[in-house]
Structure formats: C-alpha cells, structure tokens
Design a binder for these strands. Structure first.
Lengths: 190, 190
DNA sequence: CGTCTCGTTGAGAGTTTTCAATGTAAGTGG
DNA sequence: CCACTTACATTGAAAACTCTCAACGAGACG
C-alpha cells in the first residue's frame, strides 16, 4: 500500500507509525474485472479507495439500461455518499471495470479513525472539497455541451482514459447511447 | 447571526465564546435582489454562506444565455470551489435571486479559522460531504430523467421553491428553455 | 400611458433515441 | 489452435424529444 501512503502525504504530514495505525482501519480487497462491490438496494456499508484499477458507479434505469454516473481510478474514493453517511440502502451499484486493488472502510471504523487521527478530518475535508469542485465542473459541462461536444471535450481531456475503457461505458458515462457514439465518431472521422 | 449559530450546532459543539471568535472571521454582507457577488473571470476570493435569502450560480454559454447550475438558500454554502481553493479566476457568476444576508470569508481567513478552531475541520468535512452527496443525487437525476420528468420531479419535491423563484430560472436550472417549460406545463395542465 | 419583464403559443428545424440488422473482435472450452 | 459463443461496435431509417425564432399577452412599475 505504498500508493496510499504517497497519496496521504500530498495532504497531511504523518510518520510511519501513524501510517501503520491509519492503514489498520482499512481492509485490503482484490477484485477481478466486473466484480460487484456494492449493489443497488443493499445497505451501503463501505467507502472504497482505489489503489490499483478502476471502479464505476451505475444505476439501472426504468428501461433496464445501466447508466454509469462516475468512474474512480487510482487514488479516488467511491461510495454512495448519501447512503453511506446514513447507513441506508444504496441507490447505486459499484463494479470493477478492471482487475483492482481496493481499500475498504466502514462507517464505524471511519469514525474511530477520525477520532484517533484528527489529522484525517483535514484529509477528508480536502478530499470532499476536491470532489465537490469536480462535481461542479462536471455539472457545468453537462449544461454547457451537447452530446457530441461532451464526447469531444472528454476525449481530448482524457485520451488515455478513452483507451483504457470500452466505448459503451464511455457512452453510458456521457449519458447517451452506444449507437449515437458510433455516429459521432463516424462524423468526426470523416 | 442566530441562524448561523443554530446551523453550526447541528454539527459541532461550541460555546458562546468560541462562536463569537468563529463569527469574527466572517464579514456580514447585505444584498438587494439581483446583485452580483462574484463574476466569471475574476479571481474567486470568497466563500459565501447564505443566512437569509437565495443565491444562484450561473455561467454564460456561447449563445450568450445564462445557465443556472445551482441555487443556495438559507444555511447553504456557495462558491466556485475549484477556483476558490486555488485562488484562480472563477468560472461562474454568483448573484442574489432575492434580497439576502450573506456571510463571506476569504481563503486566508478560512485557513486561520481552521487553525484556531480545529473543530471547524470536522464541520467543513461534514458540509462538503453532504454537498458531494447532493451532487451525486443531482447527477443521477440528470441521467435518469428527461426534461419533462425533471420538472415533475423537481416541482413535486420542492413545491415551495417553485413558488419562490421565477419560472425562467427554474427552466435554466433544469437545463432547458423557458419556452419548453411552458409547453411542459401546458401538457401537464391538460 | 408607455415600457420592461415574464410567460405562452405554434411552426419548423435540429438533436438524440429506438429498433433491427450486420459486422467484428475477443474469450472460452475442446 | 480451432470452432463456438458472447460481447462489443457500426449503420440506417423512423420516431421522439427539445430548441429556435417570431409573435403575442399579461402584469409590474415608473
């Protein structure tokens, strides 16, 4: 878990002993591709930190289609924040997109962690703050661009991610159908 | 500023002396309807807390139309989080929708506040966490519903807000044109 | 009274989805 | 390694959704 340590170091100053203690509050989990970490309708027990790999969050709409709302790659956190905070049923599914290594913590452990290591309040404050900032930007893009522009924007901003992820997930994340993405790509190609 | 105290009390335990000290880091501002608190392109200096009234955050799209992305009513915070954190140019405008009373704090003051009152780290962690939770829900709705359903959803969930705000701002917030909102309302009426 | 803002209506145009069919790449078990 | 199956990507036509534009009506306010 060297990567988690490096990540924490970007926000807070801790020594080896503290790090060992902090890490002890988490469970390390390994997943294959397309394994489920959380299911819609089940109590949202865990907050996940992606150490290696990629997760996606999605729900199933009334037509039975999976709508991806978020990806999490290395050094990102993911859960249904609303449901985790209240320990209620999750509104989302979380699934690996690739083989992944994930740190997991439950609410009670997080509370104990914050109690024992107050510096982690600062850490999580910063993480949530960045997460809010990202959400604000995300929402702006959704209002500013039409589907074609969203794809163009996304593929120029994260070309390496486009390579990494199947296209139908990109389409799902950008909020349109795989067919329409094909059409857009055909148009851009010509 | 009794309302701010009551709001803080929901998250943290502080005495009168601490509260007085905390409040001293803020500036109290009064605004009339449609006054500007922040402008796109200017350095994002302030984080705002709405004590009374209502703010909206918007940007101007390439067609010159104002797109509202967020409202803040009593006990909500608002800024361009990304720009505030980095003290860079704001990507959004912030304007009052009604006559409002607002607490304002700049980044340096917030840092001093957090230093002097570590309990505020916890407070802001909770606030940002809730904000993230709201954003996750918001994004889900944007993916789940078409415009008509968005309006239906919004108007049944926040009927009191629909009363409070002019319709063209509702349309802007939900991401469609006032004309289309009229059409939806006509359809629902019949 | 005139002006401005806001809400409404309708026609036509643009965007995006649906559905069904086909093609292609990739994984699996023998 | 091949044959089979499944998952993913593409195409095209018709339908559904949403926007644009121009015009009109109603109310607020100086």
């Amino acid at each position: 878990m060297e990567s988690f340590r490096a990540h924490l170091d970007k926000f807070i100053k801790i020594n080896d002993e503290e790090y060992t203690s902090i890490l002890s509050f988490f469970t390390i989990l390994q997943f294959k591709k397309k394994e489920n970490l959380m299911k819609e309708g089940e109590i949202c027990k865990s907050l996940f930190f992606v150490s290696v790999g990629c997760l996606r969050k999605f729900f199933v709409n009334e037509k039975g289609v999976e709508q991806t709302t978020e990806f999490a790659i290395e050094n990102w956190w993911m859960t249904d924040t609303f449901a985790f905070e209240r320990q209620t049923k999750s509104d989302f599914n979380i699934q690996t997109v690739e083989k992944s290594v994930v740190l997991s913590i439950d609410l009670k452990s997080q509370e104990l962690l914050l109690q024992k290591h107050p510096v982690m309040e600062h850490y999580f404050r910063m993480v949530y703050q960045k997460s809010c900032a990202a959400a604000e930007r995300r929402i702006r893009y959704l209002y500013e661009f039409n589907r074609e522009e969203l794809y163009l924007q996304f593929s120029t901003q994260f070309p390496w991610f486009i390579q990494r992820i199947p296209q139908y997930l990109i389409a799902s994340f950008l909020g349109f159908t795989p067919e329409y993405l094909s059409e857009i790509r055909a148009k851009l190609r010509s």
